[in-house]
Design a protein around this nucleic acid. Structure first.
Lengths: 256, 256
DNA sequence: TCACCCCAGTTGTCTAGACAACTGGGGTGT
DNA sequence: ACACCCCAGTTGTCTAGACAACTGGGGTGA
């Protein structure tokens, strides 16, 4: 804290520089769990920023879950770690890379077909519209993890099947090739049993426990661009989630 | 918007009054999806509050997911609804009531036992500590939904078994009887198959698909107070989740 | 026609204060 | 011993501005 030199001419906001510095102190153990962070007043005085800026830095730590505030007492380092973010939209590729695994995919089929009733509803397309449907087996570190069927409206990316290597990340191709940035998704998770096709593709026995995911993805503004149904092995896949802290979060670290 | 009279002497913060009013406009359809909300400037002028206060109201809508901001353009009503909050810690009771179902529970057993290895790790208890263990079948609208085993450190609530009616909400009892307010939890979800005991208790056949939940709950400050393992029917239970909007949220509506 | 510039409108960040509400500890008076 | 008050420290809310960065549209000039 004492050693921090703020760069007042950087494009990086001050509150974000402060947030990053405090985060380092926490991760390195210089600030221990349960101990108070410097108060808004102290940060403000020491770093010569206004109290609102110091406050924004502290609040952003709260919304990351690494700290919490108590009125009249202070802001404290949270005892719980798990900075992982299972709340963000992540493609299979991103998720596996974050876990430290090498992801890839085996193509089952890719074709242009009429949108089914279910996908039409989710993507808000007229029933005569066509979609690009890609079926893949998702693999991490040479182990088959799940079967995934993705539907994208054809008008959105008409030449996708030429441009896209199905073994790589679809989200990356959509982002870099078409400027389609997926920022939000609704997901439904069900528990089910592998049917015989899934069992064969995944190398498990029929009737093994599986997760069934149904995901609809949106770009900024809410237009649906992707409808995905996937089946993942119950023995190799877990969902972990941090619940709570309802409400009081304020400004997180997104400022870049 | 025009008709809003702010109560400047209320204990309810101004930004929260504004947020609630805009939320009404959105829910009632007066503000339609995709349309811009009043800008910070406009709110500020019209309601005679400072721009920072107007801003806080708009940001809180963003963090609820009902709006989104674009720099240089404005703040817009999100096209996606689903205000449900599957990010909050909710007891089974709260969750079912939010769904519109009548929850209750059948007690299987309640006893004081030595903490197991697994629970000791999660609750950070020494291995010789004792826990209160409550096993219940969770029922919604007369349909059995799942089997739940809850472990609580005995010193925390020594006379719980006298005070607590196992057919009601444990969280409510902890909150009202002991001042223990659970504000955060880590949850792991797995897909599995019902064993014969679970099948009998839930009225399904052995080998049916089920969700396996493992939850550790914390009070403000991070002390673990509850370790729960539960098995829920795959045919009657779904998880839905909203992903995304990484980062930029600012102050939500918690101010009361 | 097209590239460029400028401008009004908007959100993002920041300042320097103010008062309210709450916490916890110390002191005072009974 | 105990209740009460007061006070310093802290977060919550709010004000009234400022400049930066970006968007989109209109106008200008080549």
């Amino acid at each position: 804290m004492e050693s921090l030199n703020l760069d007042r001419h950087s494009v990086v906001p001050l509150y974000f520089q402060i947030q990053q510095h405090l985060l380092q102190d926490i991760r390195s153990g210089r600030l221990k769990a349960g101990k108070p962070l410097p108060s808004e007043e102290v940060i403000s005085k020491r770093l010569r920023v206004s109290r609102m800026t110091a406050r924004q830095a502290l609040k952003s730590l709260c919304s990351l879950g690494v700290a919490y505030s108590q009125r009249g007492k202070g802001t404290f380092v949270s005892e719980i770690k798990l900075e992982k973010n299972f709340r963000q939209v992540q493609s299979f590729t991103e998720e596996m890379e974050a876990r430290g695994s090498r992801p890839h995919s085996k193509l089952i089929s890719s074709e242009v077909v009429p949108v089914g009733e279910e996908a039409a509803l989710a993507l808000r397309l007229p029933p005569e519209e066509k979609v690009i449907r890609i079926r893949r087996v998702r693999v991490a570190d040479a182990l088959p993890m799940g079967v995934e069927t993705t539907c994208l409206p054809q008008p959105l990316c008409p030449d996708l099947l030429d441009k896209f290597d199905p073994r790589t990340s679809l989200y990356r191709t959509l982002s870099q090739g078409y400027g389609i940035h997926i920022v939000q998704a609704d997901e439904v998770v069900e528990a089910g049993l592998a049917n015989s096709e899934e069992a064969r593709l995944l190398g498990i026995s029929k009737g093994s426990p599986v997760f069934l995911f149904t995901r609809t993805s949106y770009v900024q503004g809410g237009q649906a661009v992707e409808y995905v149904k996937s089946t993942f092995r119950g023995d190799r896949y877990k969902i972990t989630n941090r619940l709570g802290q309802s409400g009081n979060d304020n400004s997180s670290g997104g400022g870049m």
